[in-house]
Design a binder for these strands. Sequence first.
DNA 1: TTCGGTGCAAAGCCTTTGCATGTCT
DNA 2: AGACATGCAAAGGCTTTGCACCGAA
Lengths: 122, 122
Amino acid sequence: MTKSVRKTKQKEVIEKYLASTCCHPSADTVYSEVKKELPNISKATVYRILRNFKEKGKIQEIPTDVSRWDYKEDPHPHFICNQCGQIFDIEEKVDIPEKKKLDVGMVESCRMVFCGVCKTCK
Amino acid sequence: MTKSVRKTKQKEVIEKYLASTCCHPSADTVYSEVKKELPNISKATVYRILRNFKEKGKIQEIPTDVSRWDYKEDPHPHFICNQCGQIFDIEEKVDIPEKKKLDVGMVESCRMVFCGVCKTCK
DNA sequence: TTCGGTGCAAAGCCTTTGCATGTCT
DNA sequence: AGACATGCAAAGGCTTTGCACCGAA
């Protein structure tokens, strides 16, 4: 694993793209988009940088079959539309038991995904 | 996709195993365990049957990197220990917004995974 | 007999890794 | 210069698919 201590064009462009979009891109989408600006970038680099960003807490991974990435530092739930497949951020308060004590142990983090049909599709 | 209308030894043994265990097995674990009783069963069959059970609502898929399977009909949160990797069922009430209306749309289902360190590991 | 289910092997997909080359500091 | 990051291709790991054979109804 890289230590990710140096500034590189690749990191810069990927971070810029993540910050600019609100479409919760997959690694593959990040790759295609960033490739427009850096035609020689490799998929491996995208994966490595996304992993790094995640470890730094700069982005969070949304657990779906295909991992998608969210440019937000604070963890929050997501809503996946069963019809169009789009992913939405949930801004509304929904009792996330961060730092909560459950019987089995202390909750340090929590991933929450809601599924349903979004307004547009309905 | 199979229509899953016939009783087969494979389905029977897999269901029996799922019902008997509380270890949230992965597809691969199901395969190894069931293989003891049905040495000729193939992995493809295990995957097909697990998918069927899920579609029937007989089991639920827990979203992790590797899918694991839970023999329960009612959806409930899970707790994954960061240390030993074990998965626990959360019995305690934690406001699951099933059938709840969010801004983006109507919630039909919800997947919730808590991470932390379990009592035993601590 | 019929058509769904199974086993096997191959293919698919997403992601990671090994290694030589390039490049920040 | 030296450690770290990247690109490329190959390998990995999990899951699905194609196809011929098997077997429940």
